[in-house]
């Protein structure tokens, strides 16, 4: 494999002429036919850390999920790296940390197995994990403050540690655009500082970050722009 001499963290490669990691134009998102958000315009450039804020029910999660196609896109256009979403195939360039607090299943799963699953988008279905993949998983664990936890069972982690494992899963894919839905909820101050450092590091190497947060906390130092959703019926 050609990737054996790869640096531990591959720098995000932004193609020449690509000045936007994520573009939403006139976006309308919702559940089924119920509109939650309308007329969303958002451009996120490489190196930016954009915080999405707003009251409960304003549609912060709907925005992130809508962009990814996990809930209905009722209007407008979503582009990843200047490619319309319908034609976008390089999903490994996009990382996602969902707003879930727990990961559960019927079979024991180790932290390493969970985090490794985030690397899968970079591999072909039958392809085995290589040295570069294992390195990326180690890096991701470190970036989420979970170094040394790799053989622990996910079910035995605390809620906050599980959130960090979900972050590590997204980091394992070396994303150039990272979407995080409330990554700080239920996470202690020290881990929030680790998260802030990780996001700052990503932005430094040219990745774009969109983070839904209720309270900025330690993230305030790394956020370059804040987008506030007004919320239904609330004054703008």
């Amino acid at each position: 494999m050609l990737l054996s001499t790869r640096p531990r963290r591959a720098p995000a490669v932004v193609p020449v002429g690509c000045d936007s990691a994520l573009t939403v134009r006139g976006g309308g998102f919702g559940h089924g036919r119920d509109a939650v958000l309308t007329g969303v315009d958002l451009t996120v450039r490489p190196g930016e850390v954009v915080a999405v804020r707003g009251p409960n029910g304003a549609g912060k999660s709907t925005l992130v999920r809508g962009v990814l196609g996990l809930c209905a896109v009722q209007a407008g256009e979503v582009r990843f790296f200047d490619v319309p979403r319908a034609r976008f195939r390089d999903w490994h360039r996009v990382g996602y940390v969902p707003q879930r607090h727990t990961v559960a299943g019927g079979v024991p799963v180790t932290v390493r197995e969970l985090v490794s699953s985030g690397r899968l988008s970079r591999l072909r279905p039958w392809q085995r994990f290589g040295e570069a993949d294992r390195c990326a998983v180690d890096c991701a664990l470190e970036g989420a403050g979970l170094a040394g936890f790799d053989r622990r069972l996910v079910a035995e982690l605390s809620g906050g540690q599980q959130r960090r494992a979900l972050l590590a899963r997204a980091l394992a894919g070396d994303p150039e655009l990272l979407l995080l839905d409330e990554p700080t909820a239920g996470v202690d101050a020290a881990s929030q500082r680790v998260l802030a450092g990780t996001l700052a590091g990503l932005a430094e190497i040219g990745a774009a970050v969109v983070v839904v947060v209720h309270e900025l906390g330690p993230l305030a130092e790394v956020v370059t722009r804040t987008v506030t959703l007004p919320g239904a019926g609330a004054p703008c």
């Binding site: 999920r65 999903w91 490994h92 969902p98 969970l114 985030g118 899968l120 279905p125 899963r169």
Partner: peptide, 22 residues
């Protein structure tokens, strides 16, 4: 066994798997 990792990833978190383009 051959596709075990993909099946595992989908079962673990179907939405995340969709968002990863699986």
């Amino acid at each position: 066994l051959g596709l075990g990792r993909s099946l595992f990833t989908v079962a673990l978190d179907e939405e995340h798997a969709l968002a990863s383009g699986l």
